[in-house]
Amino acid sequence: MLSGPSGVGKGTVVAEVRRRHPGVWVSVSVTTRRRRPGEVDGVHYHFLTDDEFDRLVADDGLLEWAEYAGNRYGTPAAPVRERLAAGAPALLEIELQGARQVRARAPEAQLVFLAPPSWAELVTRLAGRGSEPPAVQERRLRIAQAELDAAGEFDVVVVNDDVARAADELVSLLAAPSSERSVGASE
Protein backbone atom coordinates (compact mmCIF):
# COMPACT_ATOMS: atom_id res chain seq x y z
CA MET A 1 0.00 0.00 0.00
CA LEU A 2 1.23 3.48 -0.75
CA SER A 3 -0.16 6.25 1.37
CA GLY A 4 0.80 9.76 2.34
CA PRO A 5 -0.65 13.21 2.83
CA SER A 6 -2.56 15.05 0.15
CA GLY A 7 -0.18 16.93 -2.12
CA VAL A 8 2.83 14.70 -1.42
CA GLY A 9 2.78 13.45 -5.00
CA LYS A 10 1.31 9.97 -4.68
CA GLY A 11 -0.40 10.23 -8.06
CA THR A 12 2.74 11.63 -9.67
CA VAL A 13 4.92 8.84 -8.25
CA VAL A 14 2.41 6.16 -9.30
CA ALA A 15 2.27 7.67 -12.81
CA GLU A 16 6.08 7.52 -12.91
CA VAL A 17 5.98 3.88 -11.79
CA ARG A 18 3.60 3.17 -14.67
CA ARG A 19 5.84 5.05 -17.14
CA ARG A 20 9.17 3.57 -16.03
CA HIS A 21 7.92 0.10 -15.11
CA PRO A 22 4.88 -0.70 -17.29
CA GLY A 23 4.75 -4.28 -16.00
CA VAL A 24 3.78 -3.13 -12.50
CA TRP A 25 0.07 -3.61 -11.85
CA VAL A 26 -1.60 -0.64 -10.19
CA SER A 27 -5.08 -0.89 -8.71
CA VAL A 28 -7.52 1.76 -9.96
CA SER A 29 -9.47 3.17 -7.04
CA VAL A 30 -13.07 4.30 -7.03
CA THR A 31 -14.06 7.77 -5.87
CA THR A 32 -17.05 10.04 -5.51
CA ARG A 33 -15.00 13.20 -6.09
CA ARG A 34 -15.23 15.20 -9.28
CA ARG A 35 -12.76 14.61 -12.06
CA ARG A 36 -9.83 17.00 -12.24
CA PRO A 37 -8.76 18.31 -15.64
CA GLY A 38 -7.00 15.59 -17.63
CA GLU A 39 -8.23 12.67 -15.53
CA VAL A 40 -9.70 9.70 -17.38
CA ASP A 41 -12.36 7.42 -15.90
CA GLY A 42 -10.96 3.92 -15.46
CA VAL A 43 -7.35 5.12 -15.71
CA HIS A 44 -6.91 7.58 -12.85
CA TYR A 45 -10.02 6.53 -10.91
CA HIS A 46 -13.38 4.95 -11.50
CA PHE A 47 -15.61 7.98 -10.84
CA LEU A 48 -18.84 6.89 -9.12
CA THR A 49 -22.00 8.48 -7.86
CA ASP A 50 -22.75 8.30 -4.14
CA ASP A 51 -25.37 5.60 -4.83
CA GLU A 52 -22.91 3.47 -6.82
CA PHE A 53 -20.34 3.77 -4.03
CA ASP A 54 -22.97 2.84 -1.42
CA ARG A 55 -23.80 -0.32 -3.40
CA LEU A 56 -20.13 -1.39 -3.46
CA VAL A 57 -19.86 -0.89 0.31
CA ALA A 58 -23.09 -2.84 0.93
CA ASP A 59 -21.89 -5.71 -1.29
CA ASP A 60 -18.48 -5.89 0.46
CA GLY A 61 -16.91 -5.03 -2.89
CA LEU A 62 -14.19 -2.80 -1.44
CA LEU A 63 -10.97 -3.94 0.20
CA GLU A 64 -10.92 -0.62 2.03
CA TRP A 65 -12.63 2.71 1.79
CA ALA A 66 -12.44 6.07 3.45
CA GLU A 67 -13.92 9.52 3.37
CA TYR A 68 -11.41 12.27 2.76
CA ALA A 69 -12.04 16.00 2.37
CA GLY A 70 -15.75 15.40 1.76
CA ASN A 71 -15.31 12.66 -0.85
CA ARG A 72 -15.09 8.88 -0.62
CA TYR A 73 -12.33 6.69 -2.04
CA GLY A 74 -12.00 2.93 -2.10
CA THR A 75 -10.13 -0.03 -3.54
CA PRO A 76 -12.18 -2.59 -5.48
CA ALA A 77 -11.42 -5.92 -3.81
CA ALA A 78 -11.83 -8.40 -6.68
CA PRO A 79 -8.98 -7.20 -8.93
CA VAL A 80 -6.53 -7.06 -6.01
CA ARG A 81 -7.48 -10.53 -4.78
CA GLU A 82 -7.13 -11.95 -8.31
CA ARG A 83 -3.69 -10.39 -8.68
CA LEU A 84 -2.43 -11.67 -5.35
CA ALA A 85 -3.92 -15.13 -5.95
CA ALA A 86 -1.86 -15.28 -9.14
CA GLY A 87 1.27 -14.62 -7.08
CA ALA A 88 1.84 -11.15 -8.51
CA PRO A 89 2.33 -7.93 -6.53
CA ALA A 90 -0.30 -5.20 -6.39
CA LEU A 91 0.28 -1.49 -5.93
CA LEU A 92 -2.53 0.36 -4.15
CA GLU A 93 -2.70 4.12 -3.64
CA ILE A 94 -4.79 4.70 -0.51
CA GLU A 95 -5.47 7.14 2.31
CA LEU A 96 -4.38 6.67 5.92
CA GLN A 97 -7.82 5.36 6.98
CA GLY A 98 -7.69 2.82 4.18
CA ALA A 99 -4.14 1.79 5.05
CA ARG A 100 -5.29 1.09 8.59
CA GLN A 101 -8.17 -1.03 7.27
CA VAL A 102 -5.81 -3.01 5.04
CA ARG A 103 -3.37 -3.50 7.94
CA ALA A 104 -6.25 -4.94 10.01
CA ARG A 105 -7.49 -7.21 7.20
CA ALA A 106 -4.11 -8.21 5.70
CA PRO A 107 -1.31 -7.79 8.25
CA GLU A 108 1.20 -9.22 5.76
CA ALA A 109 0.68 -6.31 3.35
CA GLN A 110 3.60 -3.92 3.14
CA LEU A 111 2.55 -0.36 3.90
CA VAL A 112 4.70 2.40 2.43
CA PHE A 113 4.38 6.03 3.50
CA LEU A 114 5.28 8.66 0.90
CA ALA A 115 6.63 11.70 2.73
CA PRO A 116 7.38 15.20 1.47
CA PRO A 117 10.95 16.48 1.71
CA SER A 118 9.64 19.17 4.11
CA TRP A 119 6.45 20.70 5.46
CA ALA A 120 7.11 23.89 3.46
CA GLU A 121 7.36 21.86 0.25
CA LEU A 122 4.06 20.12 1.01
CA VAL A 123 2.34 23.48 1.58
CA THR A 124 3.74 24.76 -1.72
CA ARG A 125 2.57 21.67 -3.59
CA LEU A 126 -0.97 21.91 -2.19
CA ALA A 127 -1.23 25.62 -2.96
CA GLY A 128 0.22 25.04 -6.44
CA ARG A 129 -2.60 22.72 -7.44
CA GLY A 130 -4.93 25.67 -7.88
CA SER A 131 -7.86 23.25 -8.10
CA GLU A 132 -9.30 23.94 -4.65
CA PRO A 133 -10.46 27.00 -2.71
CA PRO A 134 -8.33 28.18 0.24
CA ALA A 135 -10.72 26.68 2.84
CA VAL A 136 -10.31 23.22 1.27
CA GLN A 137 -6.53 23.68 1.10
CA GLU A 138 -6.47 24.62 4.81
CA ARG A 139 -8.51 21.52 5.69
CA ARG A 140 -6.14 19.35 3.61
CA LEU A 141 -3.15 20.84 5.48
CA ARG A 142 -4.70 20.01 8.87
CA ILE A 143 -5.34 16.46 7.71
CA ALA A 144 -1.84 16.26 6.19
CA GLN A 145 -0.25 17.12 9.54
CA ALA A 146 -2.17 14.30 11.22
CA GLU A 147 -1.14 11.93 8.43
CA LEU A 148 2.52 12.90 8.77
CA ASP A 149 2.24 12.14 12.48
CA ALA A 150 1.11 8.59 11.57
CA ALA A 151 4.15 7.77 9.42
CA GLY A 152 5.45 5.49 12.19
CA GLU A 153 2.56 3.07 11.56
CA PHE A 154 4.05 2.19 8.16
CA ASP A 155 6.67 -0.42 7.30
CA VAL A 156 8.72 1.89 5.09
CA VAL A 157 8.93 5.66 4.54
CA VAL A 158 9.93 6.89 1.08
CA VAL A 159 10.71 10.60 0.75
CA ASN A 160 9.42 12.12 -2.47
CA ASP A 161 12.28 14.53 -3.11
CA ASP A 162 12.87 13.09 -6.60
CA VAL A 163 9.96 11.45 -8.41
CA ALA A 164 12.04 9.01 -10.48
CA ARG A 165 14.03 7.86 -7.44
CA ALA A 166 10.86 7.48 -5.34
CA ALA A 167 9.19 5.46 -8.13
CA ASP A 168 12.22 3.18 -8.45
CA GLU A 169 12.39 2.69 -4.67
CA LEU A 170 8.70 1.76 -4.64
CA VAL A 171 9.20 -0.77 -7.45
CA SER A 172 12.19 -2.30 -5.64
CA LEU A 173 9.95 -2.79 -2.60
CA LEU A 174 7.37 -4.54 -4.79
CA ALA A 175 10.08 -6.86 -6.12
CA ALA A 176 11.25 -7.80 -2.62
CA PRO A 177 10.56 -11.43 -1.69
CA SER A 178 7.19 -11.99 -0.08
CA SER A 179 4.40 -14.52 -0.31
CA GLU A 180 1.83 -11.77 -0.78
CA ARG A 181 3.44 -8.43 -1.57
CA SER A 182 1.03 -5.57 -1.80
CA VAL A 183 2.14 -1.97 -1.81
CA GLY A 184 -0.65 0.58 -1.94
CA ALA A 185 -1.40 4.43 -1.99
CA SER A 186 -4.41 6.87 -2.15
CA GLU A 187 -5.50 10.37 -2.67
Rank of each mutant, 00 (worst) to 15 (best):
R105D: 12
A77Q: 07
Q145Y: 12
A135S: 14
S27I: 01
L141C: 08
V156I: 13
E138S: 09
A78I: 02
A78H: 12
Q110W: 08
A167L: 09
E147V: 14
A150P: 12
A146F: 00
K10I: 07
L122E: 05
A176D: 11
V183R: 02
G152S: 04
G7Y: 00
A135T: 11
A109K: 00
D161W: 13
Q101I: 09
V40T: 15
Q97T: 15
F53Y: 12
G11S: 14
F53W: 07
L114Q: 02
A175F: 05
R125G: 13
V17W: 00
Q101W: 03
D168L: 03
A144I: 10
S29G: 14
R81M: 01
G38M: 05
R105H: 10
R34P: 14
D155L: 09
A151H: 12
H44M: 05
P5F: 13
V43K: 05
R33Y: 10
E147K: 01
P5N: 02
V14T: 15
L114G: 07
A58C: 13
L122D: 08
F154V: 10
G130Q: 11
V24P: 09
V157S: 10
V14K: 08
Q101G: 00
D59A: 15
A135N: 09
E108R: 04
R33F: 09
L63E: 01
E132L: 04
P134Y: 13
R103Q: 11
S27Q: 06
E64W: 11
L114F: 13
H44N: 15
P76V: 04
E169M: 03
R34F: 02
D54G: 09
L92V: 15
L111N: 03
A115D: 13
F47P: 00
V123Q: 08
A135R: 12
E169T: 14
G42I: 07
L148H: 05
H21P: 03
Q101A: 15
L56D: 01
V26T: 15
Q97E: 15
G152D: 14
A120M: 04
E93T: 13
L96G: 07
R103C: 06
G184Y: 00
L174M: 07
V112R: 00
S27V: 08
D161H: 14
A135G: 11
G128A: 06
G184I: 09
V156Q: 14
A106S: 11
S118V: 06
V28Q: 02
H21V: 04
R34Q: 09
G9W: 07
A175I: 07
R81K: 10
A15P: 07
G7W: 02
R36K: 15
W65E: 06
Q137S: 10
P22F: 01
R36E: 14
G4S: 12
G128T: 11
A109F: 04
P22S: 02
E153C: 05
V13N: 00
D162K: 03
E93Q: 04
R55N: 01
P22H: 06
G23T: 13
V40A: 11
L141Y: 06
N71R: 01
D60G: 12
G61W: 02
L173K: 00
D162S: 11
A66G: 12
V43S: 01
G74K: 02
L148R: 11
F47M: 01
F47W: 07
V80E: 05
E187G: 13
A85Y: 00
V159N: 02
E52R: 06
D41C: 08
V157F: 15
P76F: 07
P37N: 09
V40D: 04
V57L: 01
V156H: 15
E82L: 13
S178K: 06
D51T: 13
